[in-house]
Design a protein around this nucleic acid. Structure first.
Length: 563
RNA sequence: UGGGGCGUCGACAAACGGUAAGUCACGGGACUUUGGCUCCCGCAUCUGUAGGUUCGAAUCCUACCGCCCCAGCCA
């Protein structure tokens, strides 16, 4: 890690925690990551995970709980539980014994509800859903009290008991907090605490037919777990007043503090669950683990490392301003991590045949090439076979090159990495004028890639032996959308901005050492990018490599500037 | 036009009344058997706008402008 990162521990949340520790308000810190098991985690969740687990790990005795916020039986499912746990673990975090479910607190939560009723702070409301909405008023007009607002404690207790007992149908009654129908904060206009749902819950089965709402569940779950700092995203700022109200009006075992921070937005992708679902269900991507998706599963399959994700989350910081991070910063974190840990190999993505006319027919030789040229002992070497017929990258040859083109062209000499200097002496074209072969001579004196006479070449290109190379399917992934903000235009559906080249599949030729590659192995294909043998489709017989991220390409910039 | 938040370089983001960090991106250069990596240099006289307080303001005050969130029996 060579570049500077923001000094750790200085964001506003860590400052608050430091103050609470210094003042003696808390002796340690307890946070929680509270996903709802109704979907897959994405890189936005990674920011929250990194924050919550990170902050806890920085304080002696600190801990972070993994709590499934599962109070809605209609959308949640056990299938998400394991996937979420796997993702958090893969990111490198350990909740130890602190795995919880809000659904485990249903009984305690019910008791708190009874307490609120007994103290006249909650009531059963029998208005229809539509009427509740009408009575709520609007942001500029105060609401009006429900006609059921002044039911007696006895009646409320009786009604809630019968709600729980299943005597009523969905929607017949709800339990509401009695706060203030004229509150300027809409969240305080007698918010719903419980609703009737005759639906089986993935964990509690048919034990309950009433389920607590988020605002009631979350603060009390935090309190019961002795959470000190409850970190959530900005859209819950309005909920904080209610969070505090509930804790102040029941005998809560603790008084956690909710602190909101800005969620992560990344350009050239989408993060909302609704849009992700649309991409998956609409068949625009292959599934939740499609390597083009910002889901943790997708990034994992893409080949992105957990270290890169964590580094990225540290670099972006934590603040309260809505912002959109440039995906280039994420790509930097990915390259920065992969640069130091991937072996270098050669693979030709767009093969062009090169014939060395003065090299003996039917002969070949092996070169020892270091896997990590910047520090050869680090990863050792592999044999790379060389022969009369090779494949080079089509983009590495130009018949009529511009000034600064340092690669192969008629009359030009370049170095074939780890092999010889070659000079282009002829070009073979097909009837359409397309170059199908380039002929070169090689200089035997330059074996290994150095000229004893001190002769220099401007370019070094990669290659594979035609006789020995392996064919491989290579999936060239690119940004999923062509627009930085796919949903900026309200009149255009975001799927209209899908990048038609978000995945280009090419038939490549790779060096034979890659026959040893196992699913999940990562490499740098020199001069091209970082790749990973696909975890699902890669086999020795039929290699499949995913491009994680291309290398930076300053030549591309030169070309772009020339235009 | 009710309430809650937020506006610092193209993108993130520090600075907590003492005279605008850092990262990414971008531009230039060095090095180079990857046009990769690495290294060096440059990149806000200025902090949404306008006033005010102060010896001194991104930081305090006032007004205005802009953006986000809240009217699910979702979380």
């Amino acid at each position: 890690m060579s570049n500077e990162k923001p000094p750790p521990g200085t964001d506003f949340i860590r400052q608050i925690i430091a103050e609470d520790l210094a003042s003696g308000k808390h002796s340690t810190v307890v946070t929680r990551f509270p996903p709802e098991p109704n979907g897959y985690l994405h890189i936005g969740h990674a920011k929250s995970i990194t924050l919550n687990f990170g902050v806890a790990s920085e304080v002696p005795g600190g801990r972070c709980h993994l709590r499934f916020d599962d109070s809605n039986p209609e959308t949640e499912d056990a299938e998400y539980i394991e996937a979420i746990k796997q993702d958090v673990k893969w990111l490198g975090y350990d909740w130890g014994d602190h795995l919880f479910h809000a659904s485990d607190y249903f009984e305690e939560l019910y008791a708190f509800a009874v307490h609120l009723i007994k103290s006249g702070k909650a009531y059963v409301c029998s208005l229809s859903e539509e009427d509740i909405r009408k009575y709520r008023g609007t942001v500029t007009k105060a609401g009006t009290g429900s006609p059921y607002r002044d039911r007696s404690v006895e009646e409320n207790l009786d009604l809630l008991g019968r709600m729980r007992a299943g005597e009523f149908a969905d929607g017949e009654h709800v339990l509401r907090a009695k706060i203030d129908m004229a509150a300027s904060n809409m969240k305080m206009r007698d918010p719903l605490l419980y609703r009737i749902r005759h639906a089986p819950h993935y964990r509690t089965g048919s034990d309950w037919c009433i389920y607590p709402m988020y605002d009631f569940t979350h603060c009390l779950s935090d309190a019961m777990e002795n959470i000190t700092h409850s970190l959530c995203t900005l859209e819950f700022e309005n909920n904080r007043e209610l969070y505090d109200w509930i804790l102040d009006n029941v005998p809560a075992p603790a008084k956690p503090r909710q602190i909101e921070f800005a969620r992560l937005n990344l350009n050239y992708t989408v993060m909302s669950k609704r849009k992700l679902v649309e991409l998956v269900d609409g068949g625009h991507v292959s599934g939740w683990d499609d390597p083009r998706l910002p889901t943790i599963a997708g990034l994992r399959r893409r080949g992105v490392t957990p270290e890169a994700i964590r580094d990225f989350c540290e670099r972006i910081g934590v603040a309260k301003a809505n912002s959109t991070v440039d995906v280039a910063l994420f790509e930097h974190s990915i390259r920065d991590d992969l640069n130091t840990k991937t072996p270098r190999v050669m693979g030709v993505l767009d093969p062009l045949k090169l014939v060395i006319v003065n090299y003996p027919e039917d002969e070949s030789e092996d070169f020892d090439a270091p896997y990590f040229p910047d520090d050869p002992p680090k990863m050792g070497t592999r044999k790379v076979p060389f022969g009369r017929e090779l494949y080079i990258e089509r983009a590495d040859f130009m018949e009529d090159p511009p000034k600064k083109f340092f690669r192969l062209a008629p009359g030009r000499e370049v170095r074939l990495r780890w092999a010889y200097f070659v000079t282009c002496v002829d070009v073979v074209k097909d009837e359409d004028g397309e170059v199908v072969e380039v002929h070169c001579t090689y200089d035997p004196e330059t074996k290994g890639g150095d000229a004893p006479d001190g002769r220099r070449v401007k370019g070094t290109i990669h290659w594979v032996s035609a006789a020995h190379a392996l064919k491989a399917e290579v999936r060239l992934y690119d940004r999923l959308f062509t627009e930085a903000n796919p949903d900026a235009d309200k009149d255009v559906d975001f799927v209209e901005h899908l990048n038609p080249h978000s995945m280009d599949v090419v038939s490549a030729r790779v060096e034979p050492s890659l026959a040893q590659a196992m699913p999940g192995d990562r490499f740098q294909f020199e001069r091209t990018g970082y790749f990973i043998a696909d975890s699902i489709d890669h086999t020795t017989d039929k290699p499949v490599f995913n491009r994680i991220v291309p290398l930076r390409d300053s030549w591309k910039k030169i070309v772009a500037k020339g235009k």
